[in-house]
């Protein structure tokens, strides 16, 4: 198993890292690297080969002011502190390659990012609702979202006083 610094070095030597898109710091991780969306699958495969599991994936709404989503993947392995973060800067309406072929759990993480933010994942086998009711059309974790449209199942909103 490779230490975080070794994994980061692999990413850099193969040219899979990208320029930092923002100075916003990440702490609680041993190494953090920016990865271009096109290199994400190769970089995740390198992590898996080095013995890492996909610990978490977070989508952050940075549409205002950057017009992008930030995807923050953390990888970890089963010995001493070894958390590695991959940060991906995704312009709105650009599909991210799916990691579900590398890590099974990514399929669920990506469904969550899709239903809550509207991020599309290219090649996903089953990109559908995971936590929200089927057919939900709003994206509740967007900063622009304030209130859901009235539900047809909820008569408390329409009942006459």
């Amino acid at each position: 198993m490779a230490a975080p610094a070794e994994l980061a070095a692999v990413l850099e030597s193969r040219g899979w890292t990208a320029e930092p898109a923002t100075a916003h710091p990440v702490s609680g991780v041993a190494e953090s690297r920016w990865v271009a969306p096109g290199n994400l699958v190769a970089a995740a495969e390198a992590a898996k080969e080095a013995g890492y599991f996909l610990e978490s994936m977070t989508c952050v709404d940075r549409l205002d002011p950057h017009g992008v989503f930030e995807l923050l993947y953390t990888f970890n392995r089963w010995d001493a502190p070894a958390r590695v973060a991959y940060r991906v800067w995704v312009p709105k309406d650009v599909a991210v390659p799916t990691l579900s072929g590398v890590y099974g759990i990514a399929a669920w993480n990506e469904r969550e990012a899709w239903e809550l933010f509207g991020v599309a994942f290219a090649g996903h086998p089953n990109l559908t609702w995971l936590l929200l009711p089927e057919g939900t059309e709003f994206r509740p974790l967007l900063k622009s979202f304030t209130q859901p449209p009235p539900s047809i199942y909820d008569d408390s909103l329409t009942a006459s006083p």
Binding site: V26, V60, T74, R83, A85
Partner: peptide
């Protein structure tokens, strides 16, 4: 302060992580 923090603990079920931006 501005920043992202990942913090992990061992819950009764496994590794619980909180990421705060």
């Amino acid at each position: 302060p501005v920043g992202t923090q990942y913090y992990a603990v061992e819950s009764a079920r496994g590794a619980y992580g909180i990421l705060i931006v």
